[in-house]
Amino acid sequence: KDSVAFKRLKSIETTAEDGKTVKLYEFKANIHQQDPYILNWVKITQNQLINPVEQQKTILHGGKFITYYKSGAMIKASSSLSSDGKNWTPVTVSGLPVTVKTNTILSTTNNSGSTAYALNTDNSIYTSTDGLVWSKVTSDYPVIAIYGKLPSASGEFAILTAVNDAGTLKFALTKDFTTFTVKSALPSDNTLPTVDFSAVSLENPTVFSAKYIILSGGKDKNNIVNNKLWIIQELNGDITHLSEVSSISLQLSRLFLYDNKVYLMTYETGKNKLYYSENYGLNWISGGTNQTLPDNFTGRMHASVITDTNNFIWILGGESGAQVPIVDVWRGRLNKLAE
């Protein structure tokens, strides 16, 4: 026979030409009963914030999710362990003015630990080590935008910003927003977004030169909407940039890194859609039916999208197209990354 019943095939024993040497080969079969490229989503919780809720922003900081939001004339917050996401506890925020731009709050990590930063409407910076007690930073320049941690060939920690240098907007690098290394001016056509953009820091360990910040959406300094994808890097001591007009709408989009790819969650006609890119966002591929959001997922703008070390994607809060606050938490993961 040239075949054998699969269930009966446990091992094969072979004998060498000397008729004495015997070797046993055992078989082990791994059967995948799920498509490895399907994203499975679960609603973890809802209504975890105390009304009224406006302008939410969630960060992952020190092993916890912290959701900041404006509630009347106050900045409030709620926190949950990053391993949980279901049980949230109101926490007290001090030192952070109600005029802060909540969508600029971010957490950065270097060798000395994690620090949170936020940009105020007067172009000043506030900082916190625990995410709850904040203080104002005395800075050399008015800060116009915080783009995030910029990977560099030297490996030195630096945050890329845009500052106002005597009336000219320039790129600048800083470690703590007290002092800056000012670089070249922002693009002369003024189309680089300075507000309401989505940003992601990317470092490809297999390509030495692939150390970027990628930007999507937002508006430029003249309040004109941006539909370009921007790739920014430090090269030969200066800040270089490449922009590409996107074939899909980048307004109100959210960038994130997942499965060694750049992902994008768009918002169009009241619904969210997932795309991914294999060339740093220059071209986008639809996630298709395998990577759609659930039917009961409310389409939203201004959501926080976070990925963690357990290969989960977290989508937290946002606003509906009618600008009604959405207060819920979703978590998703590819089948192949759950093994």
Rank of each mutant, 00 (worst) to 15 (best):
V163P: 00
T15D: 12
I38D: 12
T194H: 04
S320W: 06
A199T: 15
R300D: 05
S247G: 11
P294W: 13
E54P: 07
G148L: 00
Q34H: 09
L39E: 12
D35F: 09
I105Q: 00
L250D: 02
K64L: 11
T21D: 11
L337H: 12
I59F: 12
P52T: 13
Y258M: 07
N272T: 09
P187W: 02
M265S: 14
G299W: 03
Y117Q: 00
N47Y: 06
G131S: 09
D130N: 15
G237H: 15
P325F: 14
D220E: 14
D295C: 04
I105S: 01
L119Y: 02
V327H: 07
L39P: 06
I232D: 01
I146C: 01
N226E: 11
N111L: 12
L274C: 10
S253C: 14
T178F: 07
N223M: 09
A172N: 03
V195D: 03
P187C: 13
E278R: 07
W134V: 01
V200S: 03
V93P: 07
I44T: 06
S94L: 13
K136H: 06
V245A: 15
Y68N: 03
N120E: 09
E234T: 05
T168W: 08
S277R: 11
F157P: 00
L9R: 10
S124L: 02
K28C: 08
G217V: 03
Q291F: 08
T240G: 12
N310W: 06
F197I: 05
L173W: 03
T115Y: 04
I144V: 14
V195W: 03
F171D: 01
L186T: 00
A158G: 12
V207A: 10
T206R: 11
S3I: 09
F65P: 01
K228V: 05
S198Q: 04
Y276H: 11
N111T: 09
V200W: 02
Y25F: 15
L229K: 02
V225Q: 07
Y267H: 15
I315E: 00
R331K: 08
L49W: 05
W41C: 07
I315L: 05
S107V: 08
L334D: 04
I159F: 00
T307K: 10
L60G: 05
W284K: 06
S128I: 00
N226C: 10
I232P: 00
S114Y: 13
L255A: 13
S107Q: 09
F197N: 01
L264R: 02
V195N: 03
K228A: 12
T92N: 15
S94I: 13
L229F: 08
W230C: 01
M301T: 11
N311E: 15
A29G: 07
T108S: 10
Y267L: 08
E26V: 12
H302T: 14
